[in-house]
Write a protein that binds this DNA or RNA. Sequence first.
RNA 1: GCGCCUGUAGCUCAGCUGGAUAGAGCAACUGCCUUCUAAGCAGUAGGCCACAGGUUCGAAUCCUGUCAGGCGCGCCA
Length: 548
Amino acid sequence: MKKDTVHAIRTALESLGISPCPPVDIEIPKGESHGDIATTVAMGLARSLKKAPRKIAEELVGAIPDRSIFESIEIAGPGFINFSFTKDYLRAMVKRLILRDRSILREEIGQGRKVLVEYVSANPTGPLHIGHARGAAVGNALCSILEESGYAVEREYYINDAGRQVKMLGMSVYAKYQQMLGVECEFPEDGYRGDYIDDEAKALISGAGEKYKGRSFDECGDEISSWSYRRMLALIGKDIVLFGIRDFDHWISEKELYDRGEVGQALSALRDLGHIYDKDGAVWFRSTAFTDDKDRVVIKSDGAFTYFASDIAYHKDKLDRGYDIIVDVWGADHHGYIPRIESVMQAFGYDSSKFRVILVQMVNLLKHGEPFQMSKRAGNFVTLSDVVELVGADTTKFIFLTRKADSHLDFDLDVVTAQSSENPVFYVQYANARINSILENARTKGIDPGAAVDADLSALELAEEFSLIKKLLAYPVVLEGAARAFEPHRVTYYLQELAGIFHSYYHHHKVITDDPRLTKARLALCLAIRVVLSDALTLLGVTAPEKM
RNA sequence: GCGCCUGUAGCUCAGCUGGAUAGAGCAACUGCCUUCUAAGCAGUAGGCCACAGGUUCGAAUCCUGUCAGGCGCGCCA
């Protein structure tokens, strides 16, 4: 739909000798009275051509060579050109959808460009919680959308396994272990207090027995820390599987960056470029030379690297790997880091426009309408696995994807567990399940739904049927917008709209009728709808159950 | 104090990178199950797009200011 229209407009622009050819903006009008698809090019050209928009539109329309696919082309309002398609054109698209013709499901805007998306990257000191889940859902869906739009996407998780956090994890487990074995041991003040620490201590007892009993942390701390850390990483891996998002292509270890000397190398590279200086016994990165408002310490006066130092190394590593676009999905509370990372990019001579941060706002967890305060230290946070068990992975992901990433989100445990119509995911999944139910019903009546590909689609004549087809043809336009804007939630909204039109159609018209020709045609339409529903749900990481 | 995000129906939020008469879900009222799944459908009602200016053919959308909420501003991680 879009491709054919854009092609027609481009051809017309060329034949009018308008060059360079301006970008052809296409939009799908809200109301059907404005046609099936519209363009604003004429209005956009008004200024540079110094002509009235409607005049340009007229010339443009006159110059469209082949208008056989259009029912009508009208100029409206200040200079819109509204296109309507013939019924036969629309009908023909149904078959291409059933056959999953990629050219009408996707816009290949990525052209193979390499994209790295880093998301989740939770510290390996405990299980994932509800806050991480939003980043996981958004990152996962974004990757799928970009991938299906023709980008070469790599998914990455950065593990902060070098700092004191891992040590603190070890100390927490160590203390709990000693306590359980009856040895008096003070729990570290900044230790992690979740139930999982108890579990780890128990696991340590059953695995190592009393091997560490009564020994000092200096003696056995490293062993316990790295043991705990590996288990936490495994736990996070399990959570990711449980949540139903794709596995990461790369798990990058901060510690390994240090071990390979990359942190030191990155800093000396910066020093060679003249962006490093010494002051007050510390080593500084002159980030104010770029977009930052403050210079940043990279090596403290006690000789230790700051967290930012390894971040420099990590992002240099990303740059060196040669991606066209580097995306970081961060919690919104880290927004203050954007300028300094941008500065790093620029310091290494890269255009920071290839770097893009998606900020994911906090999840406001509610229970009985009241805020449910989470604190990892207090140990009362709600884990991702708890939520998956309580709410379900599909619902959780879908709800996280019904808002744009940078808006705040209320997640009321009572509301989302109610299994009521407040769960938009059911609405969409139900449409898919209904179609399967129809197909099943057809089979029991001896009709092979698969044969519907050959249906005589001229039997489709209802306005609702054409609304459905047009909505299906809008899918690649929505996908393209979602990919360009890095906004997965657009797909979520589209799905709800498509499901809505289908539910209405279902209620008003029988698919399986006494008329074999009509039945076959409507089955074909159902198959096409199912293709889009399941395709979009898959991109969002949500399942498309056959039965509900 | 400075910076970032947000402000749209009673509530939760969309609004397609500046387009045509502002949308959805929930909540509230009205109807619809001997017919492919009622987790559904049809309808009613609900708005000074926080406020004030500006930019232009055209603004919920872009710019400036004000107000309100959230977050961030360490030789922490």
